[in-house]
């Protein structure tokens, strides 16, 4: 692994909710333009870890972390990091589609508007571009002024991805992005992840082992707050080194 290629790096991450320790000494390196999947049973800490990467846990009362998170070699928890700048660089797609109760158009341009961009041409271009990239353009191009809540669940989730792309991040975090969707929508999202990998570094949390197998290059298996195994996805699924990983992926628990 070349060092210049490392996009995200965590060092000795410990995390706590109040007194309860939920992550133990996580060291992980993620390369640029790859898809990394976090798998593991509920409550294993994978979502908490994902949310550390764009400081989404900052708002949770009683949350505390030790250790460093480096993105492009820069400590994102240092005093000099502006959290809003960080989030422009590290976008996030959530488990449940959460479009704003506004038009499709306004959903996509929100991230640009709050940066003070008013140029109509720029905004229009961003809308078309982002919706095309999230494979939603053909379905909604005539209804951009329609309320986003009137879209189907799968369309809403692709809109949320478009909204994230509009800000032009380099990393996209996805927290079980397809778990609330039907199989066809799920397939579309997975296809999309595969496409987006060309230009983005993607980290995806998933419950669905097959999904991890299909979309990711690397897989990290978490259990009770420990990083049990991290390797090429193929290796994890065909020849896991740890007995616990094998038990999990063969469906013995979880």
């Amino acid at each position: 692994m070349e060092n210049g290629n490392i996009k995200i790096e965590t060092k000795n991450i410990n995390a706590f909710y109040g007194e309860k320790k939920v992550l133990h000494n996580i060291d992980l390196q993620m390369e640029a333009n790859t898809v990394t999947a976090f798998i593991g049973p509920s409550g294993c800490g994978k979502s908490t870890f994902l949310r550390l990467l764009n400081r989404m846990n900052d708002y949770i009362d009683g949350f505390r972390k030790e250790g460093d998170v480096l993105i492009n070699g820069v400590d994102i928890y240092s005093k000099n990091t502006r959290i809003e700048e960080l989030r422009k660089q590290v976008g996030m797609v959530f488990q449940k589609p959460n479009p704003f109760p506004k038009t499709i158009y306004e959903n996509v341009v929100y991230g640009l508007r709050i940066q003070g961009i008013k140029d109509k041409q720029k905004l229009d271009a961003a809308v078309e571009n982002s919706l095309k990239r999230s494979a939603l353009w053909n379905e909604v191009k005539d209804d951009l002024q329609k309320n986003a809540l009137s879209l189907s669940g799968g369309q809403q989730q692709r809109l949320c991805i478009a909204r994230t792309l509009a800000v032009e991040p380099s990393i996209i975090l996805m927290d079980e992005p397809a778990s609330a969707l039907d199989p066809i929508s799920t397939a579309k999202i997975e296809e999309l992840i595969y496409e987006l990998k060309q230009d983005y570094t993607i980290v995806i949390v998933t419950h669905n082992m097959h999904q991890a197998g299909r979309v990711s290059d690397k897989t990290a298996f978490f259990l009770s707050g420990d990083l049990v195994e991290y390797n090429d996805t193929k290796a994890i699924f065909t020849s896991p080194k740890d007995q616990r990983t094998e038990n999990y992926i063969t469906g013995k628990f979880g």
Binding site: R87, F94, N98, F100, I114
Partner: peptide, 11 residues
Amino acid sequence: SIKEASYGLGA
């Protein structure tokens, strides 16, 4: 979720 979406976009 609305709040998180907004924060997530850099607001």
